[in-house]
Amino acid sequence: MKISKKVVIIGHFGVGKSSLIRQFVENTFSEDYKVSIGVHILKKEVSIPENNKDVTLVLWDLEGNSDIKKTRTSYLLGSHAFIYVFDLTRPSTYGNIIEELEYLKVTKSNTPIIVVGNKSDLVTKKFIKEINTKFQNFNSIYTSAKTAENVNDLFLDLAKQLV
């Protein structure tokens, strides 16, 4: 039986949402800076060897927005998971993150949320450790779309959570 799941990727402008997905879906990374426009839909089949299942992740890459309340709510409907991406090098992209995640928790209860600190190649391990204390109540991971660090793990772990 085919298992498909809708995963919505949200976050501020320029945090690397599109790059993160491109790294996972096409296994390439472009240095061209490109801000997402509207919504871009991509898909990736993920195999979970532990239980011998294949999951189709349909990824909705939403345009960057500094306020989640301004996001087109119809795009969030029917989601099986959210990936909230922020830029580790820009505090403005995670300044209001707790409020944003609480909003998601309240409006979309029981939908798993993964917090992703992207651009880990540009900060120190010590900094990541410090910032991680902020998200103790959330499932968080630190990635680099540039070096592909943790990108596959992010989606594989998510797929495992969803089946």
Binding site: S4, K6, G38, V39, I41, L42, K43, T56, V58, W60, R72, S74, Y75, L77
Partner: peptide, 19 residues
């Protein structure tokens, strides 16, 4: 056609137009 992505895009277009 890539049905999964087409159905996603159709839904997004529908939502966008209706919104």
């Amino acid at each position: 056609i890539e049905e999964d992505m087409v159905s996603g895009m159709l839904t997004a277009i529908k939502s966008f137009a209706e919104d």
